[in-house]
């Protein structure tokens, strides 16, 4: 009895706190990807922590597929992968947890070979230095174990091993030729990397050798305007109250004059009383 009561007491503030944080926590973003070359298609489930009904279900997600970002309330989630078509109630092949912070974005990707498949949570970058683009590389080719990735002929990731994720690098905004060069295959693509954009280049095993997929992680105004905007001239603002100071001054001066006048009146009537000897 006592134990139950104290559990209730301890539990109550915690519940109140979590309700409050849910109301003010804001939103983040999550996207789901299948980047394991020899793993058959899967169904991917996203659960809000503690809720057995999935918030998002993606069916028959094949190798190389990356979903668009979904906006979700900040908080704890779990991601589960099941074989395509498996019952939602069946034991997942893989699952992982992910904490979504407000205004942050995440990619949850199935990575590695089927024998060593894992769900990896990647922190995606939304911002890039002013006037620049940013790029990172995910090497998801099993056939070419090591890949050199170049941008405009410069190696931005000299040696990307299978199932690795590079950090982001800032590059000048431009249209660039990207190349993924393996030991026996290479892929070439041209992409416009605008100022304010953030990209992930995914290197995949295609039907005919390597392929590059360009993921846009975020985009913003290339040249953000300075400050707010001047979009009104006051025609509907109501003809404002103006300053109360002049009226306050009149009241104040009136008060002083009345005080002075009243004082003199009182003194004169006192003097009159003294003079008449009352």
């Amino acid at each position: 009895m006592l134990v139950a009561a104290s559990a209730l007491l301890i539990g109550m503030p915690a519940a109140a706190a979590s309700a409050a944080s849910a109301a003010t926590a804001g939103t983040g973003w999550i996207r789901l990807a299948h980047l394991s070359p020899n793993t058959p298609p899967v169904d991917v489930y996203l659960y809000s922590f503690g809720d057995s009904n999935a918030q998002i279900v993606l069916h028959h997600v094949a190798y190389g597929t990356v979903s668009p970002y979904e906006a979700v309330a900040a908080g704890d989630y779990s991601v589960a992968m099941r074989s395509a078509g498996a019952a939602a109630s069946s034991q997942p092949v893989l699952s992982t947890s992910v904490t979504v912070k407000a205004d942050h974005a995440y990619t949850v990707a199935g990575m590695g070979p089927e024998s060593g498949l894992r769900l990896q949570v990647l922190n995606d970058q939304l911002t890039t230095p002013s006037g620049k683009s940013s790029v990172r590389v995910i090497q998801a080719s099993l056939k070419q174990q090591t890949v050199k990735f170049t941008c405009g002929g410069q190696a931005i990731v000299p040696k990307a091993t299978f199932a690795s994720v590079s950090s982001y690098q800032a590059i000048p905004a431009n249209t660039w030729t990207m190349e993924a060069i393996g030991s026996s295959s290479k892929a070439t693509a041209r992409y416009n990397m605008g100022a304010g954009t953030v990209h992930t280049m995914v290197v995949l095993d295609g039907a005919n050798g390597l392929e590059i997929v360009n993921l846009v992680d975020a985009a913003g105004a290339g040249k953000p305007p300075a400050g707010g905007v001047t979009t009104g001239f006051g025609g509907t603002a109501g003809h404002g109250p103006g300053s109360p100071l002049p009226w306050l001054a009149v009241v104040g001066a009136g008060g002083l004059i009345a005080l002075a006048g009243g004082y003199r009146l009182r003194r004169s009537s006192l003097r009159r009383q003294l003079n008449t000897g009352v």
């Binding site: 109250p241 009226w247 009149v250 009136g254 002075a260 006048g261 003199r264 009146l265």
Partner: peptide, 30 residues
């Protein structure tokens, strides 16, 4: 004391007028 009485009355009028002006123009933000 005529000047004192006049001053007293004028002061009261100024207070009334100033208060009226304040109330009439300083209505709540529209």
């Amino acid at each position: 004391r005529r000047p004192a009485a006049i001053a007293f009355a004028a002061g009261l009028i100024a207070i009334a007028g100033g208060t009226a002006g304040l109330l009439l123009t300083h209505h709540s933000t529209p």
